[in-house]
Design a binder for these strands. Structure first.
Lengths: 212, 212
DNA sequence: GTTTCCATAATTGTATCCAATTATGCAAAC
DNA sequence: GTTTGCATAATTGGATACAATTATGGAAAC
């Protein structure tokens, strides 16, 4: 019987910091001092630095030379770029996946939707949203493509959290998600891709109008 | 007078390991023991671990729980996914950039081409290739898009190094590059995008036929 | 009053040591 | 002969101490 460990302090620290940032506790541009964070998260500075570096490569924090780490500040262009890329890549993932969709995938997607309905915490809400998209994309069995798409979704979640659009448009998003799921259930690939495209465009539009 | 430091041991260690991997010194799947690497690079294990993590998020090495790090093993699907994505994203970057191209950009691109002509080291050759593409994409002034494209190019360079196609098709690649540059110089956007697309498709094709 | 310079403090990066986890090998049981 | 179990070694993760770098503040010069 093989046993998995995986729970290294780096991951839990990264997850906690991620939550603090997406909750708005730490605002964009705010410096993240290692000693203070170390004390707050009850973790030594060594794994903390690893976590900060991980978040830096994820795009959530910026880290410079010997100056330290700050919460990243998303610019409007970033939002445009992210959605331009998602509009190109996610339809490809969906297209590759529809032929391999199973009832289990649909069940997973629906579970994520139901969980999202009763969720008000921004971070967990964005997690549910990703779980939904992930359930529909994953059957494509293209991990490299998935990896990039997940990165873009994480960054989008950050931008949406800043603009507070995640919670504001959660009902609209839920409706769009259910339409997309229904099209997938009916095996309507073209319709599904159309719904996905529309969903992304609407999300982009709403973020644009909220952020300054 | 402000002075920049930036030269942290993590970066130099990461760069050295990157070179060792792309040179073929460390083969895919080979375990990377911290103590041995620490001794080889004359660096403590702490910054070394950071470098390994950085390379892991870059996709060059795989790192699991308490088991350690290994050189990543690219699968054929990864190559397909990478080029599918590049074929979607790089034309967008080029399209956004052509309107802002200056003589300086063309000069930079040509300098990269000339440097590539006399370069046989795989790692440096792939660096030159990226410098060329970077020179043509950068005027788009879309850093978030550039960031993702650079990640994909790094991963592609890894796959090409494994398949040894970087050096093998270097002359072909150079010719394609010069055609692309010429189209950009003439302000022929459609032609440039066509050349870029063809270039990526040919590179993909040649890798496919070389890897097993 | 402003600027420059230097000393000091605050903060990050690195090295070393210890703890936790995993891999290895051998003996005993069946 | 194979397998199970445990003891030991090898390796990674984490905590602490130290070194390097940057930021801060105040005095002196103009």
């Amino acid at each position: 019987m093989e046993t998995y460990t995986e729970k290294t302090q780096v991951h839990v620290a990264a997850e906690q910091i991620r939550t603090l940032i997406l909750d708005g506790t730490y605002r964009p541009g705010q410096p993240l001092r290692q000693e203070a964070l170390s004390e707050r998260l009850k973790v030594s500075r060594t794994p903390l630095r690893h976590a900060l570096q991980s978040l830096a490569e994820e795009g959530l924090v910026e880290t410079v030379g010997f100056k330290g780490a700050r919460v990243a500040r998303p610019d409007p262009n970033m939002v445009r770029d992210l959605f331009d890329m998602r509009l190109l890549l996610e339809p490809l993932a969906l297209k590759s996946a529809v032929a391999h969709h199973t009832k289990l995938d649909f069940a997973r997607a629906e579970m994520a939707l139901d969980a999202a309905d009763t969720e008000r915490d921004p971070h967990r809400l964005s997690q549910r949203n990703w779980e939904f998209h992930h359930a529909l994309y994953r059957p494509s069995d293209r991990p490299t493509l998935m990896r990039t798409i997940e990165q873009l979704n994480r960054a989008s979640a950050f931008a949406e959290a800043i603009a507070k659009s995640i919670v504001i448009r959660s009902e609209k998003s839920a409706a769009e998600h259910r339409e997309l799921l229904e099209a997938c259930r009916n095996g309507d690939m073209d319709g599904a891709i159309l719904h996905l495209t529309k969903h992304l465009q609407l999300a982009y539009h709403d973020i644009q109008n909220l952020e300054y």
